[in-house]
């Protein structure tokens, strides 16, 4: 008897599968996941977890959160990040203190492994969702992430 119950089960599971794809077929117009890219360039928004490039967010007072600890530079497996740093006088305490001059990021060498972002103790760098990185001159892929004249945000190191 298991012969017939197997046939019954087989047909039932096949029909279940067909009903699933059939539902997709009917609703495909609404739920199409295809992005017709250059046409919808203005409205296209990449999903949050997309790894496009490393960015350093700044707030309105042109302050970033990077203390120049260089952990990201050490963590990077292929030398994508270079931090040029300096010692300056901290206004609050009057002591000498490390601060970044230029946070240099070579996008052309980056493998998007994310180790720098994982290792950053102050969340100074994040993933950006920009993906249009084709350029005519590769030197434009080397970027300085901290904006000119930017300073360290207060209270990051506490």
């Amino acid at each position: 008897m298991s012969y017939f119950s197997e046939i019954y089960k087989g047909i039932k599971t096949l029909l279940t599968g067909m009903s699933v794809t059939g539902k997709y077929f009917v609703t495909s117009r609404k739920g199409a996941i295809t992005q017709q890219y250059p046409d919808n360039r203005d409205t296209l928004k990449m999903f949050d977890r997309f790894r496009g490039e490393v960015i350093m967010p700044h707030n309105e007072e042109n302050e970033h959160r990077c203390t120049g600890c260089q952990k990201c530079e050490i963590a990077c497996p292929n030398g994508t990040i270079e931090i040029i740093w300096d010692r300056g006088i901290d206004e609050a305490t009057g002591k000498k203190k490390k601060k970044i001059d230029q946070f240099i990021y070579h996008l052309s060498m980056c493998t998007m492994c994310g180790l720098c972002i994982d290792v950053c103790p102050h969340d100074a760098i994040k993933w950006g969702q920009n993906f249009e990185n084709s350029v005519y001159d590769r030197s434009t892929l080397t970027r300085v992430l901290n904006k000119p004249g930017s300073t360290l945000m207060q209270g990051v190191e506490d």
């Binding site: 794809t21 997709y24 077929f25 495909s28 117009r29 739920g31 199409a32 996941i33 295809t34 017709q36």
Partner: peptide, 10 residues
């Protein structure tokens, strides 16, 4: 076209 619709493509 039908394959695309089954796979939620265009």
């Amino acid at each position: 076209r039908v394959a695309a619709w089954f796979q939620l493509r265009i």
